[in-house]
Every structure is written in structure tokens, then in C-alpha cells.
């Protein structure tokens, strides 16, 4: 199986090439300028893996939530590559990718992924992680004030993501890993499952999941 994954949703810019059981990665945390970095990363990975775009099974992409412009860059690049090489696309939640990274790193069965949404809100969702496996969402992703974030978990779990740095008083977690960011490596791994489940889509059908959809107010008088 061959999957090229990319992500520019948050501070990190990353790409990963899953190729016949191996995984090659490029990762950087530039904060800004993701658009200038992402295609060179893709090019390097394809060269290193000796794979042409056409030989891939699909493109996987982080579909948000995250920075609006960042999500769109990855989505538009995924659309362009996939349409150009006639590949399907799998869109993966950036909260799921973050949860996967946290679950692998800390070896826990549950992750509350929560990232800073600015404007006194956070994006968050709860994920199960059977030992060594892939995460599954069980508290649906949403955007809300930090006060609404809470779980009643008895076992070990990890609080992962920038939301915990922005609002450290939220829930009391056994382990907090606020510096962790979603990245393409986990997006590629999660895409394997979706590809097998037949969830790949034609590129024109994938769209970001922003979670925050009210971005403007209707005004009556502006001159």
C-alpha cells in the first residue's frame, strides 16, 4: 500500500510517504510559510521512496480543525496532486492525528485532544486507543468555550494539544502534553484504515472541517 500524507493545519508543516510497510517523513515547525515548504517536502519524499505520484493508492490530508488558511493550503495541494494523478483522497481529522500521536507516545488507552481555537474557544474531541492500535473518536469533535471541556474518565488518559497550554485550568488530566502537534505520519497511518473501509473520495468532494462556521456577522449599515 502506498499513501502520501500531508498536513499544514497548525504550527507544523509535514508530509509522510507510507510505502510498502515503510514510512518516510518530513517534519518542520516553521509557524508560518507552510505554503512554501509543503511541495518541496512532497517532492523529496517521492524521490527518496522512488515512487511516482501515479503509483500511489491515495493522497491523505489533515482536514482540520486548525488554522483556516493552513487547512486550505493542505486541502488545495491534496486536491491538485490527486486530480492531477487521478488518485482518490482521504481526509483525516487533525484531532484524531494528534490523539494518535499522543496515544503512541504515552501508551495510554484514551486521549482528550484539544487545540487552541483562539477567541476564547477550543477544538476538542475524545479518542479511544486500543493498545498499539489506531484511535477511534468517541466524543464527537466540536468547538466550545474551554469551560465546556470535561470528561469523567477513571482510567489513565492523556490531555494532548495546544488547548491545554492556552487554558491550563481546564480538566485535570493525569498526563498533559500540550506541545504535541498533529502531523502527516499519523494521518498516513489512519488513512490506511479508511482506505480499506472504502472511505476514499474523489478530490473535488473533500472539504475542510473548520468546526467554527460563524465567521462573519450580518450588518445593516456599513458605508
Amino acid at each position: 500500500m502506498r499513501i502520501l500524507a500531508l498536513d499544514t493545519a497548525m504550527e507544523a508543516c509535514s508530509a509522510a510517504l507510507l510505502i510498502d510497510g515503510r514510512i518516510l517523513t518530513r517534519y518542520s515547525e516553521p509557524g508560518r510559510g507552510h505554503a512554501e515548504l509543503i511541495l518541496p517536502m512532497v517532492h523529496e519524499l517521492l524521490a527518496a521512496g522512488g515512487a511516482g505520484l501515479q503509483s500511489l493508492d491515495c493522497i491523505a490530508v489533515g482536514r482540520g480543525p486548525g488554522a483556516f488558511t493552513g487547512i486550505r493550503i493542505a486541502m488545495a495541494v491534496a486536491q491538485g496532486l490527486a486530480y492531477g494523478a487521478q488518485l482518490p483522497v482521504i481526509a483525516i481529522s487533525d484531532l484524531a492525528a494528534l490523539a494518535q500521536r499522543a496515544a503512541d507516545k504515552h501508551g495510554v488507552p484514551a486521549v482528550l485532544a484539544c487545540t487552541d481555537a483562539r477567541m476564547n474557544e477550543v477544538y476538542w474531541g475524545g479518542f479511544n486507543c486500543p493498545s498499539g492500535g489506531l484511535v477511534e473518536c468517541f466524543i464527537e469533535e466540536c468547538v466550545s468555550p474551554p469551560a465546556a471541556v470535561g470528561v469523567d474518565w477513571s482510567g489513565p488518559w492523556v490531555a494532548a494539544g495546544s488547548g491545554w497550554a492556552a487554558y491550563p485550568h481546564m480538566a485535570i488530566a493525569p498526563v498533559v502534553d500540550a506541545a504535541l502537534l498533529p502531523r502527516a505520519e499519523e494521518i498516513a497511518r489512519l488513512a490506511v484504515r479508511d482506505l480499506a473501509a472504502g472511505r476514499a473520495l474523489p478530490p473535488e468532494q473533500i472539504q475542510p472541517v473548520y468546526l467554527r462556521d460563524k465567521v462573519a456577522h450580518v450588518t445593516k449599515s456599513r458605508t
Binding site: 511541495l39 483556516f68 488558511t69 491538485g80 486530480y83
Partner: peptide, 19 residues
Amino acid sequence: LIGALLTGAALGRSLAYAW
């Protein structure tokens, strides 16, 4: 508008790469 421009630029540049 920078966000609008980047959408078209990212799509156009990537499509050219693939082709």
C-alpha cells in the same frame, strides 16, 4: 485577499506538479 489567493495558488501549483 491572501487566503483567497493562496487557495488558487496551492491548487494550481500542485496540479502543475502532478502534470
